[in-house]
Design a protein around this nucleic acid. Sequence first.
DNA 1: TGACGCACTTAACAGTGTTAAGTATACAAA
DNA 2: TTTGTATACTTAACACTGTTAAGTGCGTCA
Lengths: 197, 197
Amino acid sequence: MRSRILDSATRMLVDSGYASLSMRKLAQAIGYSATTIYHHFDSKDDLFHALVEEGMSRLSDVLREALAACTGTESGVRLRSLCHAYVTFGLQNPEYYEVMFVAAPPSLERFPIDKYRRARGNLDLFATVLADVAVETKHRARPLDTRRDATTIWAMLHGIVSLVNARRVDRRVDIDGLVGDSVARVVDMYAPSDVMP
Amino acid sequence: MRSRILDSATRMLVDSGYASLSMRKLAQAIGYSATTIYHHFDSKDDLFHALVEEGMSRLSDVLREALAACTGTESGVRLRSLCHAYVTFGLQNPEYYEVMFVAAPPSLERFPIDKYRRARGNLDLFATVLADVAVETKHRARPLDTRRDATTIWAMLHGIVSLVNARRVDRRVDIDGLVGDSVARVVDMYAPSDVMP
DNA sequence: TGACGCACTTAACAGTGTTAAGTATACAAA
DNA sequence: TTTGTATACTTAACACTGTTAAGTGCGTCA
C-alpha cells in the first residue's frame, strides 16, 4: 500500500510538479480517502522525504552508470562524465530535481541527516573522483579538501541546473551552449586539460 | 496605497518568508480587507513580481556600490568585488533572494521580460567587467562570449547561495570556507591571479 | 462469543487565493 | 442643489489546501 501511494505520487510529481500534488488528489488517484494516506505517512513532509529519497536513488544510479562507463580512464575524464551526468539528470527530471534540491517545505528547519545517506553517497562519488584528480594532476588549482571541493562543484552544477529549470536565463543565451561551457569550465577548474575550447 | 501594501509585504517577506505571506494576513497588517489588495494588484503573482523588482533594485544598489568601491583597479579585482557582493547579498537577504531567484509561482510559464530590465542590468554589470577582463588578461580561459560567461558566473554564484540558504550543505563542511573558496575559484576561472590559495 | 487491533471512512477545522455583489463616499455635470 | 458616476472599500462566498477527531467495519486471537 505504501508503495502504491508512492508510485502514484511519483507519477503525479512527474506529470505536474510538486506544487500541484495534493493529498486529496493523490488519494483520489489511488481510489482511497485522503485520510488513508495519513496512516502510511505522517504528513505531506514525510511523503516529500520519501520522494527525495527515491530521487536520490535514481540520481545515484545515473551517476554510477556514468562512472562505470569510463572506468580505467584518467580522473579528469571521469570527473567530466560525473558532472555531465548530474546536469543531464537535473535537466531531464526537473520535477524530481525540484523536490530534491530546491523545494524547501516550511516545516523543515534542517534536513534529517540520517535519512540522507544516499544524498551524501552521491556527493562522495564526486569526492572520490576528486581525490584521484588530486593525485594525478599537478595543477596549482587541484583539489585540496575533497569534501569541500566536491561541494563547490556540486554547487556550481546546481546553479546551472536550477537557473535553467526555473527559466531564469536570458532568452538571448543559448542554453545548450551555456550548459556545455559551464560544465567544461567547472571540470577544467580542478582538472585542466591542455586543450580548452 | 499601493506603496503601503508593498511596504507591508516587504516587511512580512523579510520577517517570515514568501511561503507564509498570505493576502489575508497582509490585508490585516495594513488594516484593510483582503479584497482591497486586489484593487491594487491583479493577483498574488503580480505582487510577487513587484517584490522581485524591489529585490533586483536593492541588489543593483549593492553591486554598483561594490564596483564604485574599486574603480580604477584592475579588472580581476573588480570581478572579485562583484562576485563577493552578490553572494553576500544572497546570504544576508535569503527571503528576497528566494523570491528573486528560486521561487517559481506555478502560474508563470515564463517571466515577463519587459519587467526584468533591472535584472538584466545586474547581469550586464558582470558582462561589462568580464569584457574588461577579456582585454586585460591573456589567460587561455579568459572570457569570450561575455553574456554567456556572465551567465555562467551568475549560475555558479547562485548555486552556492541557494544551496547554503536551503541548508543543503553537509554539516561537516565549513560554510564560510566553502563560500570564500567558491568565489575565489570562480574569479580565478576567468581572471587567474598569480597567487591562488 | 468477546475483545482487540487494523484499515479505512466521513465530517470537520482552519487556512489559502480569488471573485461576485453590494455599500458608502467624493466629485463632476445638470 | 440634485443627480449621476466613478472610486474605494466591504462582506460573503467558492473551491481549494493539509490535517485531525471520531466512527465503522473487518479479521484474528483468546
